[in-house]
Simulated assay, not measured.
Amino acid sequence: MANIAAQRIKREFKEVIKSEEVAKCAIKVELVNDSFTELKGEIAGPPDTPYEGGNFVLEIKVPETYPFNPPKVRFITKIWHPNISSVTGAICLDILKDQWAAAMTLRTVLLSLQALLSAAEPDDPQDAVVAKQYKEQPEMFRQTAKHWTSVYAGGPAKMSDLDDKIRRLTDMGIEEHNARVALSSYNWDLERATEQLFMTVMAKN
């Protein structure tokens, strides 16, 4: 790794570890394989959002051209959010693309992602299905995001009616995550989700 990038990351790593947000358990960063090119970040779901109580793990890859180019970041923890792909964890956030500035740091990135969980940008989505639900059925979006936080990020909420619908699909032999994705995408309409899942199965056969 280029020397300037390595030195900078080492300094920023210490900055995050000493930050008040770490003391409050809001953000965290650690090395993967003792390498400063690959880090694991964690952010806590912000209060008063469907992500509250969840803990979201991030993959952070630092290029040799850092800090002149942004780190590549994606969510490893599955999440239901308009600006984050529910499939790949890819993130749509301007500072990770064309609005990056060399003065920004790992701490800035983690706090910006946490802010994104509080204030989604549905008009510039990474996941069109989630963005549509966010805009057209806000309460359904909140329930779905809470459910995903509970299942994938250790969040507190348990919603039995949603779990019942998933169970009905898994009883038909559908894999649990696929059942959850189909139901989430069709606003928990069991009939439409079932139809979609079986059409997919038929197409594969």
Rank of each mutant, 00 (worst) to 15 (best):
M1Q: 09
N3E: 00
A6E: 06
Q7L: 12
Q7W: 03
K10S: 11
R11T: 00
R11Y: 02
K14R: 12
E15W: 04
E15V: 06
S19K: 11
K24E: 15
A26G: 01
A26W: 15
A26V: 14
I27N: 00
V32I: 14
F36V: 06
T37A: 12
E38S: 09
L39C: 07
L39T: 10
K40T: 04
G41L: 03
G41P: 09
I43K: 02
I43L: 15
A44K: 14
P46Y: 14
P46R: 12
D48C: 10
Y51G: 09
N55E: 11
E59C: 12
I60V: 14
I60Q: 09
V62L: 05
P63Q: 14
Y66S: 04
Y66A: 07
P67S: 01
N69F: 11
P70W: 06
P70V: 05
P70T: 05
P71Y: 09
K72V: 14
R74S: 11
I76Q: 08
T77A: 03
T77P: 04
H81F: 06
S85C: 10
M104G: 03
L106C: 07
T108I: 09
V109R: 11
L111R: 13
S112V: 08
S112D: 07
L113M: 06
L113P: 06
L116R: 06
S118I: 00
D124K: 08
P125A: 02
Q126W: 03
A128I: 05
Y134C: 01
E136K: 08
P138F: 01
E139C: 00
Q143W: 04
Q143F: 05
Q143T: 01
K146S: 11
V151G: 03
G154P: 06
A157Q: 12
K158V: 12
S160Q: 13
D161C: 02
D161Y: 08
R168T: 09
L169W: 03
T170F: 10
T170K: 03
E175P: 06
H177I: 12
N178K: 15
A179Y: 08
S185Q: 09
W188N: 04
W188I: 10
W188L: 11
L190F: 04
R192E: 10
A193L: 00
T194S: 13
Q196M: 07
M199T: 11
T200S: 13
V201G: 01
V201H: 02
A203K: 15
K204A: 15
K204P: 01
N205P: 00
